[in-house]
Design a protein around this nucleic acid. Structure first.
Ligand code: SF4
Ligand code: SF4
Lengths: 133, 133
DNA sequence: GCTATTATAGGGTCATAAAGTCTTTTATTG
DNA sequence: CAATAAAAGACTTTATGACCCTATAATAGC
């Protein structure tokens, strides 16, 4: 029960884009260098973010990644879901249907966390961001 | 990012103890049968619950496991922590200390979930419990 | 004190997932 | 068409989860 490191990278990459890249696309090469991770590995996460509609990719010379949506719209939950998927954190192995008591409690707890993450926008941190590393 | 199945078993075992076993110790054999899991595997989880102080073990003939604390005191969080550990769900790989912006947000989100799980006591479900399986 | 019962401890196995690399293909600019 | 950059897929390596097996320790009842 831990968030993957990929999520950590994705959050940092997004924080960088939101803070420092208003419109010019940023290459995976630059991002990977900043984050200290290989390009190919990071590109997998960025591709997921593209598929989730958070960023936009531009291939070819001077290409890279650029925000797609409004900065203020992108929440932590959006990024986490893009990387980790949206499946529930808990599945009762007995699966007695929707009345499952234990499941109800844990799902609701999860919802509490997600609600907080949804209300928290990545752009809120941009002001205090001093650069990675 | 998922709760382990061991947590699921532990929650069910505890629900059983709280619901059906007022004072007589219940053997791992019976519990394992009810839950449809091997004794040796289940016993590891029960041992963790013992170490966490939630239940008490009685070895020897007619031994087994019995609640230690007051039924009303045992929360979902207690059980989950006993099995999954209390480590944070998220660790920023850069570790810029306590001012880490991203970390602060995720930790707070986690706290929201844990608060809900702490307020939710396992005994609240006992009334509606119809037996496992 | 002996035996049956029951928990505890530790190691071993197998499967799945996470973390990361390499190579090829596709798209774009100039 | 040449250089650049993303996307896709196959692959390795490592870590974790989900189990099983066996030996040891404690206790109750005879
Ligand atoms: S919590 Fe209750 S309803 Fe849900 S699977 Fe377990 S026994 Fe069934
Ligand atoms: S979120 Fe900011 S402070 Fe925290 S590790 Fe990343 S760059 Fe450093």
């Amino acid at each position: 029960m831990k968030f993957s490191q990929a999520t950590d990278y994705a959050l940092h990459a997004m924080l960088y884009l939101v803070s420092e890249a208003p419109d010019k696309p940023v290459s995976v090469q630059l991002l990977a260098e900043k984050l200290g991770v290989s390009q190919t590995y990071l590109s997998k996460m960025l591709t997921k973010l593209v598929k989730a509609g958070l960023i936009q990719s531009v291939s070819g010379v001077n290409g890279g990644y650029r925000l797609r949506r409004n900065r203020e719209d992108i929440s932590f939950l959006d990024i986490i879901h893009a990387i980790e998927g949206t499946a529930s954190l808990f599945e009762c192995s007995f699966n007695h249907g929707s009345e499952c008591l234990i499941q109800q409690v844990v799902i609701e707890a999860e919802r509490q966390m997600e609600q907080y993450l949804q209300n928290k926008k990545i752009s809120e941190l941009a002001g205090q961001f001093k650069g990675i590393g």
